[in-house]
């Protein structure tokens, strides 16, 4: 079946002010509706920068970016209505409880009380936070905060969900819960764009990936196919190391 594109990026370039190397250098990508898309790459590759431009937090220097057919500059309000974001950092009010946080964001999204109650109950239970719903977040462990950070981004059931390293710093159990839940959301029709450093996770989870390094896309496609195409590669991790090299980044 012909895949319908939901995010189109053409020749996207971005150089941060005061920096002489571009954080994103002429990137082109198409992400189709219903995909789980993995944006993979070493530290400082430009993953967060890409998501920030897609969300409208950063201005691009050059290129064309469309989400669901809307231009990110001119129709940003249309885009905001259909996207959700799970930021890399924990973006919650530390001195409030999970319930207070979720109620606040939910109501800001305009969810009515019934819907809000149903969604918070559902998500908190699913993520194993039901018992902690009335404790202050600052008393939470890192993994608990991550799970709640995720819930705050999906509460309003967005059509497109951006996740910036949602599984970083969580244990195996939490990771599985998170990925399972994301899979479920995806089945209900949400397109997922997620960044990660975990190749094994991405190999299993993603329907499509792009490996980005130093602001450039090195490969892009279905993980299984990419492994097959490159001789000597048995997993996404070997492919990744083959393409990005073994030296340390981000220094």
């Amino acid at each position: 079946m012909p895949l319908e594109p939901i995010i189109q990026i053409e020749n996207l370039t971005k150089t941060y002010r005061g920096s002489d190397v571009p954080a994103l250098n002429n990137i082109s990508l198409t992400i189709s509706k219903g995909e789980i898309f993995g944006l993979l790459g070493p530290n400082g590759a430009g993953k967060t920068t890409t998501l920030s431009i897609l969300c409208g937090f950063l201005r691009k220097d050059f290129g064309v970016v469309k989400i669901n057919g809307f231009s990110i500059e001119k129709e940003s309000n249309e885009i905001k209505k259909i996207v959700g974001l799970v930021p890399q950092e924990i973006a919650l009010y530390e001195t409030l409880t999970p319930l207070e946080n979720l109620r606040f964001f939910g109501k800001m999204y305009g969810l009515d009380n019934d819907k809000l109650r149903q969604r918070t109950d559902e998500c908190l239970t699913l993520m194993g936070l039901d018992k902690s719903r009335n404790k202050l977040i600052k008393t939470f462990s890192g993994g608990m905060k991550r799970r709640l950070n995720l819930i705050a981004g999906i509460l309003h059931e967005p059509k497109i969900l951006f996740l910036d390293e949602p599984t970083v710093g969580v244990d195996v159990q939490s990771r599985n819960v998170i990925l399972e839940h994301l899979n479920e959301i995806n089945k209900k029709g949400t397109t997922i764009i997620y960044t990660s450093h975990y190749m094994e996770e991405a190999e299993q989870f993603c329907t499509s990936i792009a490996i980005i390094d130093s602001g450039e896309i090195i490969v892009n496609g279905n993980p299984g196919e990419l492994i097959r195409q490159n001789e000597g590669c048995t997993s996404l991790e070997t492919l990744y190391l083959l393409l990005t090299g073994r030296k340390l980044r981000d220094n």
Binding site: C55, G56, F57, N77, K80, K81, V83, G84, L85, P87, E89, I90, A91, L92, Y93, E94, F105, M108, Y109, A152, G153
Partner: peptide, 17 residues
């Protein structure tokens, strides 16, 4: 604090909020 915590990013994604 709100800006540093990133909560503000969420707000910026909600039109008008």
């Amino acid at each position: 604090k709100e800006r540093d915590s990133g909560s503000v990013l969420r707000l910026k994604l909600i039109p008008g909020s």
